[in-house]
Amino acid sequence: MSTAVPTRARGRRTGGAGRRALGALAVVLALVWVFPIYWMVSSAFLPTNRLRTSEPSFFPVDGTLSNFRRVFSDGTFFDAFRVSLAVTGITLVAAILFAFLAALAVSRFRFRGRKSFIVTILVVQMIPAEGLFISQYRLLDDWGLVNAVLGLTVVYVAAILPFTVWMLRGFVSGVPIELEEAAMCDGLSRTGAFFRITFPLLAPGLVAAGVYGFLQAWNEYTLALVVMTDPEQRTLPLWLQGMVEANKATDWGVIMAGATLISVPVIVFFLLVQKRMSAGLVAGAVKG
């Protein structure tokens, strides 16, 4: 082992300059990824006359809140916000609950059809929703659920479920069954053992699946475009696209204010829980 020390020390030293260069590269790449978001927020604070110039303003010094005031001044933002909130809320509760039960069945029981179910879950994710939306629209139309929160919720739950089951399955398998068995030897029922022992350990997984579902439902555009044709029932992404089409090439400031408004809460939420979510995505991917 004595040879290890000089080798490693040498590795460090020669790596020093390279490491700094790589660090600089990382920072430059970070700027590339951040710039569009910075630009969105910065433009949102600039008045139109400073956006329509031959020299862009890179810093919103002496900015204005007028773009935001104009977004709030007509009620459509709040209408869309309410619709988005309702759709996302119902979707999330239903999808997480259903997916959790299914994940439980798949990773805690051996039963006939288990493998077919897992294959189905995988294959369903291959189905391009973009090839299905017309058919889904007709289904909802038959039931009078077009332009209805419930209608959009049904297709969202179906869209989110497969991946959520897949993800939670990884988490449930990750909690050793021996823990439950030990609790059962100590006299707990199977259900009791599950809820007292396994369930608390699954909290990160449920949070991860919840955030995944939240982001999917909150940001979804395609199905909303097809199902919510009535301007009164627009979700926030539809509202934003409507605003782009109304103000494009004339008033980017108010568009950027709208984009900032719908993004910032999502980004904050995302940053708070992303660690768990990434862990969940990978757990779902890797664990059997």
Binding site: W33, A259, I262
Partner: peptide, 18 residues
């Protein structure tokens, strides 16, 4: 952090700013 910000931004907002 840079990547997370890009990841967390809603698709429509991203499309708008691009």
């Amino acid at each position: 952090v840079g990547l997370l910000l890009a990841w967390g931004t809603p698709v429509l907002a991203t499309m708008t700013v691009w």
